[in-house]
């Protein structure tokens, strides 16, 4: 019986085909750097498949008519990021004890390089974030963007609003000057008059029946761990839904079928 010859093995099965347009491989230092970057990204993507999600989020379409009002949500997020960065900087020096808090802020203001500037960015950034979040909420309200299918995103948004106000409230005590101390006492007392949970809430905030040594560290933990963590998580979910559902078109933009699909324009060839 004649034996069939085995097909020859491919000359080098392990090299991948050349990138189109680069027949002779990378040339020069820049070319090699580019090649290294591409293969690093490839290496990560082969193990995570992140590029699909990234492409999904970045190359989705935003509808016709999207205008500047649609930047208010992302600038709220930007203000939050700025608060996070400046907040970490302040946390390097801040000491949440009733005896040292005021002095540590004084130290930031007077001794640390650019300390008062970053402290000021954090203080006024909170006002900016609150203004932006209210403007963003107003935009989604007047555009009817909370309606089907985006109801859940509105509910998450209100939760984000409440937590943003909680951030402002808990941060106000931290400098521990007269204004912040007494305003917070009155604020916590106001919480205490609430129905049902009121008294428990104010006891939780004070860490006991009276304003005491641990009240400040409790406010600090609420301000820099608990609430920002929750905000970051909910913000992620909010943005996921924005990408999934798409942003609304402005309510006055009318949907018009493309010319070639209009009923009166379609001709049928028999």
């Amino acid at each position: 019986m004649p034996k069939l010859k085995l097909p020859a093995a491919p000359s080098n099965p392990l090299t991948s085909p050349k990138r189109p347009g680069k027949e002779y491989g990378p040339s020069g230092a820049l070319g090699h750097a580019e090649e290294a970057g591409i293969s690093a990204v490839d290496w990560i993507d082969e193990r995570t498949s992140l590029s699909g999600g990234l492409r999904w989020a970045m190359f989705r379409k935003v509808p016709k008519g999207t205008n500047w009002f649609y930047t208010l949500g992302s600038s709220t997020m930007f203000a939050f990021l700025s608060q996070s960065v400046t907040g970490v900087f302040l946390a390097f020096y801040y000491d949440p004890s009733a005896t040292r808090a005021y002095e540590s802020i004084q130290y930031i203001n007077n001794e640390v390089f650019l300390g008062e500037f970053v402290h000021g960015m954090h203080r006024w950034g909170s006002s900016v974030m609150v203004i932006l979040i209210f403007l963003h909420m107003g935009r989604t309200f007047f555009f009817g963007a909370y309606k089907y299918p985006r109801e859940l995103n509105w509910v998450i948004g209100v939760a984000l609003l409440v937590m943003t106000m909680t951030m402002s409230f808990s941060g106000y005590l931290l400098p521990f000057d007269q204004r912040s101390y007494w305003a917070t006492i009155v604020g916590v007392n106001i919480n205490g008059t609430g129905p049902l949970v009121g008294p428990y809430l104010s006891e939780f905030l004070r860490a006991g029946p009276y304003f005491g040594a641990t009240t400040l560290s409790r406010f600090y933990a609420i301000h820099m761990l608990m609430v920002p963590g929750a905000i970051a998580a909910l913000m992620g979910f909010h943005l996921y839904l924005v990408a999934k559902l798409g942003t609304t078109a402005p309510p006055w933009v009318k949907a018009k079928a493309p010319e070639e699909l209009r009923e009166d324009k379609v001709t049928v060839n028999l």
Binding site: I105, F117, G120, M121, W124, D177, Q178, W182
Partner: peptide
């Protein structure tokens, strides 16, 4: 818009500063 936000925050920080009042005194 993020750049505008940043510029506003920086301008407010420079102009308005971050003064402290007198220390809290129960």
């Amino acid at each position: 818009m993020a750049l505008v936000t940043m510029a506003v925050i920086v301008a407010m920080a420079i102009v308005l500063g971050a003064e402290l009042g007198p220390k809290a005194d129960p």
